[in-house]
Design a binder for these strands. Structure first.
Lengths: 110, 110
DNA sequence: GGGATCGTCAACCAAATGGTTGAATGTCTA
DNA sequence: TAGACATTCAACCATTTGGTTGACGATCCC
């Protein structure tokens, strides 16, 4: 199944893929543009995007020769709900989120 | 770092480990008792528990010859907060989850 | 002390993961 | 039509992962 916890958590376990998701939070992007900040091949990024797609975390739509990547945030809901079962983590603590987003982006390639 | 998103999400990506966490939601357990319902060796479960421990999701304490495993739900907070940044998941609005919370979780962890 | 129990360690294995490179496919544009 | 561009495919490689088995160090109890 596309949105199984297995595939979602596995997809989220990689820092490159989490960085990609954060980038897509800003705007939809073409594959080449997603790959630009990373120091790895386009093929590697293409694979990461496939994993994110199979997990349902993003959707890809081809327009002409450009394939656009777009966040599918709802796919995280299953995983989020599962985790909520272990404690009531405050929903949307923006300060904390921004701190983590920054540390995540710091570890992403410069 | 113990609570890095890498190690937490990777730990959560395995169904055996998620099942272990759910079991520990009920009560603290000895390693042998954790292993009992699974059709794999004790050594395999021991490895899973080590991965959960390194992720900070559980704590293990040895008393005599018995090693007790105990849930550390706070470790999930980082991951939960990170995910919240991608959408306002409101699990308390989900009826099924509310029922789950009422029956399984009387108190919210700090 | 000696045997049962609890749990880990060490060595091993198959499969999955994350990366590479080079060729291939499809599409836009001069 | 010929390139140039966007993306994936295929083959390959090293490392990690998830499992096994058997030996081992503690610990409890008779």
């Amino acid at each position: 199944m596309a949105n199984s916890l297995d595939t979602i958590f596995a997809a989220l376990a990689d820092p490159t893929r989490r960085a990609i998701l954060s980038m897509l939070l800003e705007d939809d992007m073409a594959v080449t543009d997603v790959a630009e900040p990373f120091e790895m091949s386009l093929a590697a990024i293409s694979k990461h995007l496939m994993i994110l797609t199979r997990a349902g975390l993003i959707a890809q739509e081809k327009r002409g020769r450009v394939k656009w990547c777009k966040l599918e945030p709802d796919a995280m809901k299953n995983a989020s709900v599962w985790m909520q079962g272990f404690g009531q983590f405050e929903p949307v603590n923006l300060d904390a989120f921004e701190r983590f987003l920054e540390t995540e982006l710091d570890t992403a390639p410069e």
